[in-house]
Computed example of a mutant assay.
Amino acid sequence: MQMKFIPVALAMVFSAAGAQAQEIIKIGHVAATSGPSAHLGKEDENGARMAVEDLNAQGFKINGKAVKFVLLPEDDAADPKQGTAAAQKLVDAKVNGVIGHQNSGTTIPASKIYNDAGIPQISASATSPVYTHQGYNTAFRVVANDNKLGSVLGKYAVHKLGAKKIAVIDDRTAYGQGVASEFAKGAKGAQIVAKEFTTDKATDFNAILTAIKAKNPDLVFFGGMDGVGGPLLRQMRSLGLKAKYMGGDGICTEALPKLAGGADDTVTCAEAGGVPASQKKQMEEFSARYKKKFNSDVQIYAPYVYDAVMAMATAMQQAKSADPAKYLPYLAKVQYQGITGTIAFDKFGDIKDGALTLYTFKDGRRQLLEVVK
């Protein structure tokens, strides 16, 4: 008698197992969630988390079947060695795709590991042109690169701010050196009176600022992140160096005034990205959702990270597969209408028609100057 029930019982088990079987799609995310840039890295991770949760909430389907997205976050501390270790960990975990890394200095060495494994990678903030010009078809980014950002800032410094004598400082990272170099190229018509460098972990800038002060510049450009750029600005003012201050997206954050002990309209910066008036409502809605969820304001890149995840998921849907080899060609030609605008890539993997947003500061807050393309 008992034997008669075994096939039925087994059938029920197999049926239950089949009902529970759901494809798991693993999305890796890497940023500096420790160290001086941790506040930006955590924001990036939050943007990825929001996207994954939204995809799951809407019952996202690939090839007609609902799938479940899982975020695998890693911290690279903006350190290239830790970045490659994080990349290898994600490859070993067989992730379906990677969003990140945050900094160019970690993104570039990590990109080889992902390329060797055939895993698509989208950075929402690494702006060094080197990243997408290595010949890797797996490398993409959703913001304008340093060639454009630095060049635009250089021209703006000379033609809009009237800078005649400029001092340039960089933090020796791939990002810092790259954006500072492009800025100097773009600042035609002005004299570069000093070129100095520090590190991305420095706290004392007295020696280089004293040397710069003797050259009497009317503008100081810093290539690096706000964790260093803020204290640098603070020490500039303490030394009585009243020159205008300019930097790229690394210092263009809501945290800068706090890190610098204040920031005003003598500070100009550019964010790699920007939304036209037609996208303003979507950006405001996203920012409100972000603040409600994480109890903090969007600083820079959360919406770009969010769009990167969504663009990757869209490519999977169009390919009817989350297999990296199958959806990679679809990612290269994706046209995703995101919060930040249209996500579409050129032959290098760079965002097409990437925008830049210029900001200054007033009453301790960033203030929009203009969006340029």
Rank of each mutant, 00 (worst) to 15 (best):
L149I: 14
L149V: 15
L149A: 14
S151N: 15
S151G: 11
S151D: 04
V152P: 02
L153G: 07
G154L: 12
K155L: 03
K155W: 01
V158H: 08
K160A: 13
L161I: 04
L161G: 09
G162M: 08
K164S: 13
K165C: 04
I166H: 01
A167T: 01
V168T: 13
D171A: 03
A174F: 02
Y175H: 00
G178M: 00
V179H: 01
A180V: 05
S181W: 00
S181E: 15
E182C: 00
E182T: 07
F183C: 09
F183G: 06
A184F: 02
A184G: 00
K185C: 10
K185N: 12
G186S: 09
G186Q: 06
A187L: 06
A190E: 14
Q191D: 11
I192P: 11
V193S: 06
V193G: 13
A194H: 10
K195P: 01
E196D: 12
E196P: 05
F197A: 05
T198R: 06
K201D: 04
A202C: 03
T203Y: 00
T203N: 04
F205T: 12
F205A: 10
F205N: 08
N206F: 00
I208W: 07
I212H: 12
I212Q: 09
K213D: 00
L219H: 04
L219R: 05
V220C: 07
V220W: 14
F221D: 13
F221K: 07
F222N: 09
F222C: 08
G223N: 03
D226Q: 02
D226Y: 08
G229A: 11
G229P: 11
G230A: 15
G230T: 11
G230Q: 12
P231C: 03
P231R: 04
P231L: 09
L232W: 08
L232I: 12
R234W: 00
M236W: 09
R237C: 07
L241P: 12
L241G: 03
K242D: 11
A243R: 10
K244E: 14
K244C: 15
Y245T: 13
D249G: 10
I251Q: 15
C252F: 03
A255K: 12
L256Q: 08
K258Q: 15
A260Y: 06
A260N: 01
D264K: 05
T266Y: 01
T266M: 06
V267I: 11
C269L: 02
A270I: 00
G274W: 13
V275M: 02
P276W: 01
S278N: 06
K281C: 00
K281L: 07
Q282G: 05
E284G: 02
E284I: 04
F286E: 00
S287W: 08
Y290L: 13
Y290P: 12
